[in-house]
């Protein structure tokens, strides 16, 4: 009975504390309230497991134990590095090509007219659909992963950069013209800085997509990485505790990646793009 009474009590307590905490000053509030919600979720999860008496789906405690196992086996680090490596290289490659291409497409109407249709045609194809071709071309391994991440980030970055340049206000274009800013200087002084806030937003979206796609890609067509770890845990005796623990790791890394890329938004040169205008 104890496995119901105590968690129920804690669940009610943590939810009941929310309205009280909401009156605290905002510094405390923004930390304590999410913590309470997370705790309540864990208690509810525990209660659901206990009530259903499931043997396959892990409880929070079993998941915590699985974390220990993952760390001890030293497998986790290798898979995290494998996934991050593919995402980093694919993403940098896409940014390195997509941003300059987007700048050109946004500025030159002719290149936009020529290339936009094919870009819009390729864009809606899910990167997952490319997995067979990626394996055909690069085999099972990092090459295919980097290729798939490149595909899934190249389009958001290119399209986002193009739109950013096309959105540069007429007044700024005219200011540049008026003071004789042209050629490469125009790109460096006006086009790139004017588009930069929106470019950073598109990078942020692309990185989020990359982290979603790499897991799926590793589940289907790779033999390392966090996606592979999930598949492997299920195939090796339905270890759903390891599956859920890995999912939590994936979520945590996703948060860290987003936090890191958001730091770009704080520079003085781009902050203007994120405030109310």
């Amino acid at each position: 009975m104890n496995e119901f009474v105590l968690p129920s009590l804690l669940l009610v307590l943590s939810l009941g504390a929310l309205p009280l905490v909401s009156r605290f000053r905002s510094g405390v509030r923004t930390f304590v309230m999410p913590t309470l919600v997370i705790l309540a979720t864990l208690f509810a999860w525990h209660l659901a497991c206990a009530a259903l008496g499931t043997r396959v789906f892990p409880s929070p405690m079993q998941t915590a134990a699985a974390f220990g196992e993952l760390f001890e086996s030293q497998r986790l680090l290798g898979d995290v590095v494998a996934s991050l490596f593919r995402v980093t290289f694919g993403f940098l490659l896409a940014a390195g090509i997509g941003i300059p291409l987007g700048l050109v497409l946004g500025w030159s109407t002719r290149s936009f007219e020529a290339l936009n249709p094919i870009i819009q045609g390729l864009r809606p194809i899910s990167p997952i659909a490319w997995i067979p071709i990626a394996i055909l071309w690069f085999g099972i391994g990092d090459g295919a992963g980097v290729f798939l991440i490149f595909l899934s980030t190249f389009f958001p970055v290119t399209v986002g950069t193009t739109a950013a340049v096309r959105n540069i206000s007429l007044v700024h274009r005219r200011s540049a013209l008026n003071f004789g800013v042209q050629g490469l200087e125009l790109f460096r002084r006006v086009v790139l800085p004017a588009a930069l806030p929106q470019i950073i937003t598109s990078l942020r979206i692309a990185l989020g997509v990359a982290w979603l796609v790499i897991v799926a890609a590793e589940m289907v067509g790779m033999d390392s990485g966090l996606g592979y770890l999930i598949n492997d845990a299920r195939n090796a005796g339905s270890r759903y505790d390891l599956v859920v623990a890995t999912m939590i790791v994936i979520g945590a890394i996703g948060i860290v990646l987003d936090y890191l890329i958001r730091r770009l938004e704080r520079f003085d040169e781009v902050r203007w793009g994120y405030v109310q205008r």
């Binding site: 206000s169 007044v171 005219r174 200011s175 008026n178 002084r189 800085p193 004017a194 930069l196 203007w272």
Partner: peptide, 11 residues
């Protein structure tokens, strides 16, 4: 030109 909507560069 001195523009009405701000023509100075915010960046």
């Amino acid at each position: 030109f001195v523009f009405q909507e701000y023509g100075i560069f915010p960046w």
